[in-house]
Design a protein around this nucleic acid. Structure first.
Lengths: 389, 389
DNA sequence: GGCATTAGTTGTATGGCTAAACGATTACCT
DNA sequence: AGGTAATCGTTTAGCCATACAACTAATGCC
């Protein structure tokens, strides 16, 4: 059922407002009202009234008319409004927490990150710190006249997509809690989501494929499915748990209770240990070891890459998305893993003979989940601009 | 982007027509115009005009008013129109081909199945036979005044969801072809889809969960992902290839070229062989063997169930759908496999401790793919009833 | 038979879109 | 410099689908 609500006159308005807003936001260059009319199929008069409303609500801005190189009155260039409506991305991860403010032009308006060690931490202490950070950023943004549309909190664990409850976050040592009230951000809509899913959304920029599997190694291994620019969340948002795909029934026991999970082959700690490094060594140490041609490090990466390739092949066979984006530690390690991963994919993916799986590294920066979260808030604004005019 | 088209006045009409049609179709009992008005939120006057149009277009029918047990004028009961608009389901499988005609009340109006052996067959000979069957059924339906909305062809192979091209159907020995022209059904819209996906849609009846993984064993093992009543097709519709998930890296070589695929543990032929039966023995033979407490048969089913459990656990961990529907041969074998499958799922699914995976057998009959295909055609009619009034 | 109640229809008002005409601003040509 | 064609944005009249309210129709109850 596409939508359960009855359509009335103002439904047309809302929909066409969205259409016009999208036409401006998705255009690579500033466009005029006339451009919008021809690209949307709406009458010029209609576009004018809609644009006027969006400009009055500060979702769009007009630039000074600049003469085109042709006859006729020049159009007024329309662009997304800067520093008007902003989204907030929040994150607690194992080694940092932070908050980020992003505006409709996708600029980072403000960002605050605090390093720390939140392994086996207390949510009742940690989440209020994130809330404090957010309150500061909100106060600063509002003092400059910006409107805060909402916030997304990224957590490394199983988050219920509908209720926003955290079921379990093994690496934080958290379980069964409602994180939102602990933030202490009353009056602001805060949604919660898995960290890898929001990080995946940050990969949705410009000209790259809009369908991909995002797989990121951090302490755990997380994944997300993006099809046509939309996250696929399954029934409850608990999908993408590729870290616990079985690689070998005779494999080592995993912290989850099962045996032979991918995490025991291609997780950060497992690779470090196999390479003869301390379990919590940074990726750079592993890179130095493999660049120094350490046989243990090379073997560890080879084992990790072939296991990752197997799990990715299962993933692609099961959900059919032809591009894999590797994030987190994998981005750094990609040069030494790519060949083995691609070879395994070519072997095991049923559709590979006529449609080889593309593998590429992530392009979003270190705090991708915060950026992706904030941007998802703004996607919601764009989806119903009528609420903001 | 929810939809790229500009919304006009007649868009309201179309949408509300759909809304009203759905309200009647999804109601368990006949409803009156007034009922529809209150359930949709539309004004009674609006509902009246819309219903009149749907009745005139024979998408709805009026029953004789029957006095309710209360004061007031009795409403006119509205029901889906029988034998008015019909959808056609077509199928070629390894051991039969057929066609089925279903009407808006989900009744099978007509059905024709021809057994045969289409292993390594010639599509240029087989598909015209399906086309002939379809033409007969269409002629018969149209002679009784029914309108044919379209057809769906189910094939056991990788079908591109957008172009309708068949990439490969290993068990038919077909590859890289466009099946639609070979049917010879000009003037009729025919879409092609994977057999398991259409069979899954046939499980979408009444009160059962509207989100499930459908996994069916026939000669191959096929699967489909249904979330909120909608098929999830991935990027190109090539998903659900659970038969080639890796169970054991040291496992036997598979026809696909890889090693240790699920099909080598839980496919019909592999189980038969492990049970000491001929590879093409029917399921009933296996049932008899296990009921006679044949140790080989029991061991074969135990091995199959635990392998299937592992693959299903990967599936659930990756896509998060909490119900598994087992079809094809698995439906028959479920009593002897259920315990092992459920135990493995409980072990390996990350969310199982707080949300156990439900496993149940398929309820649709033997020709589920044809039924599901025909019903999908009618779902499209229901989604845009404006085209039919 | 009158009254209350509910179903469906008719007539008027409202809101949003379109089409066509109009004013504004530019390039180009003579 | 002035006229012409072209293009942008606005104004005006008209159409269309829905809402609302009043009306007719059909039933149960007293």
């Amino acid at each position: 059922m596409p939508s359960l609500a009855a359509a009335r006159q103002h439904t047309l308005r809302e929909r066409n407002l969205e259409l016009v807003a999208r036409a401006v936001y998705e255009a690579p260059e500033p466009v005029s009202r006339a451009d919008v009319a021809s690209s949307t199929g709406l009458a010029r008069a209609t576009v004018s009234t809609l644009v006027d409303r969006l400009v009055a609500g500060r979702l769009l801005a007009e630039l000074a008319p600049v003469s085109a190189q042709r006859a006729g009155r020049p159009g007024v260039p329309l662009v997304p409004a800067a520093r008007s409506v902003v989204g907030i991305g929040l994150e607690v991860n194992v080694d940092y927490l932070g908050a980020s403010v992003i505006d409709l032009m996708n600029d980072v308006v403000d960002e605050r990150v605090e390093p720390g060690s939140f392994h086996d931490s207390n949510p009742a202490e940690v989440l209020p710190r994130v809330g404090d950070l957010a309150r500061e950023l909100i106060a600063s943004a509002e003092s400059e006249g910006m409107r805060v549309a909402g916030a997304r909190l990224a957590l490394p664990g199983l988050v219920d997509a509908h209720s926003g409850l955290l079921q379990v976050a093994p690496n934080l040592g958290w379980s069964t809690l409602n994180p939102v009230p602990l933030l202490g951000l009353s009056g602001l809509r805060v949604d919660v989501a898995n960290e890898a899913k929001l990080a995946a959304l940050a990969e949705l920029t410009g000209d790259v494929a809009s369908s991909f599997l995002y797989v990121s190694a951090d302490v755990g291994i997380g994944a997300a499915i993006v099809v046509d620019g939309h996250l696929f969340l399954g029934e409850r948002g608990w999908n993408g748990e590729i870290g616990h795909v079985q690689i070998d029934p005779a494999g080592p026991r995993c912290g989850c209770g099962a045996t032979g999970c991918l995490e025991q082959y291609a997780g950060k700690e497992a690779v470090n240990r196999a390479a003869g490094l301390p379990a919590d060594a940074p990726v750079e140490a592993l890179v130095r070891a493999v660049e120094a041609r350490s046989p243990a490090a090379q073997a560890a990466l080879e084992r990790a890459a072939s296991a990752l390739g197997t799990a990715l092949a299962d993933f692609v066979n099961l959900v059919d998305v032809g591009t894999v984006v590797l994030g987190g530690a994998y981005t750094t390690l990609l040069p030494w893993m790519r060949d083995d991963v691609e070879a395994t994919l070519a072997d095991r993916v049923l559709s590979a003979p006529f449609a080889p799986v593309r593998v590429r590294g992530a392009v979003a920066g270190p705090y991708a989940a915060m950026a992706g979260g904030a941007r998802e808030v703004l996607r919601d604004v764009l989806a119903s601009p009528a609420d903001w005019v």
